[in-house]
Nucleic acid binder design. Structure first.
Lengths: 168, 168
DNA sequence: TCCAAACCCTTGGATGTCCTAGTATATTGC
DNA sequence: GCAATATACTAGGACATCCAAGGGTTTGGA
């Protein structure tokens, strides 16, 4: 997208907020904006690593989730809840994964409303390969110092709990 | 989208990573996944506040950026660089803001390639109103403790600099 | 028993993001 | 001065996300 800017645009925004008399919320504004931008950077890296496998992050997440399920299968509503995305997003991802032969839909044995997503052998293999790639090319070189990783997990975990993500 | 889960799905993922022998990257994986999820939560809150104004976050960001420009106008490529999004995303946002009468496109006085985006009076007013709403309904109740805000700004600022966002 | 309410998934529509390619204008180098 | 290169914006396409609405299945209370 571009070359480095001469100055941090988020720090500039924070100064603008202060200059306009919103100093009391300038710091949270900057923190939140930084989270948005960081997510964008990380997502781009992840998608770059997954692209050669024909995967996107959304599809990878579903594949990985299934690979950790004991039976290699999950109801769609369960996947939606665990991935914390809208059910239609799961429908979309499953459509594409199914077209790629990585998962199949099968009816739930006892509940006619429910559809199970099942990993195929190829799907399981690709999940393994893609995870290895992400581990070595993204997570192992995250760009966060070890103690910062701990801070992030602590701070964001607290935030997510307060936001109602989980009871725990 | 749903009720709280009984347990933190990201903590579960971290345990899964460790169980599979990827303990060395389990923590960064969890931190990165937490950032993705936090962004999703924050974006939903922000969009909820902006919706009554007929704005999305992308459009708001552009409007706010223009409102801080001395002249209330910026070249599109400048906006793209400062917002750190693809030029086509700016084109898209400007199209919609222009349809809403909040900005107008005008030719650059000396460079025929360049288009200036200019805030209208309505656009300037709406930027003010929307910012006030975000300040009071999102940033003032961010859900982050004050010292955590500082940590986030520090950690994510370092990350963004290393990622090449800015030189500074 | 039976019908209304709850639940599950999908379709269709709106937005946003990026990429690739194409058109127009500037700048550079010979 | 002119051709080659670089820059700016836009059009079209692929994906993802959400919301609203619709059709099928289950559940639960009268």
């Amino acid at each position: 997208m571009g070359n480095p800017l001469p100055r941090d645009p988020i720090a500039d925004a924070q100064r603008n907020w202060e200059r306009h008399g919103w100093g009391d919320v300038a710091a949270p504004m900057a923190a939140i904006t930084a989270i948005m931008r960081t997510q964008q950077i990380l997502l781009a890296r992840i998608e770059g690593v997954l692209k050669p496998f024909g995967l996107t992050f959304a599809r990878y997440e579903l594949l990985a989730l299934l690979s950790f399920a004991r039976s290699g299968a999950l109801p769609m509503n369960k996947a939606s809840a665990l991935l914390q995305v809208h059910p239609t997003s799961v429908t979309n991802a499953v459509d594409r994964l199914q077209d790629a032969g990585l998962v199949v839909r099968s009816p739930h044995p006892t509940d006619g409303r429910t559809t199970l997503i099942e990993l195929t052998a190829e799907g399981r293999t690709l999940a393994k390969t893609a995870t290895a790639a992400l581990n070595s090319e993204v997570f192992a070189q995250s760009g966060f110092a070890s103690q910062d990783v701990d801070q992030l997990i602590r701070i964001l975990g607290k935030f997510r709990r307060n936001a109602g993500d989980f009871a725990d």
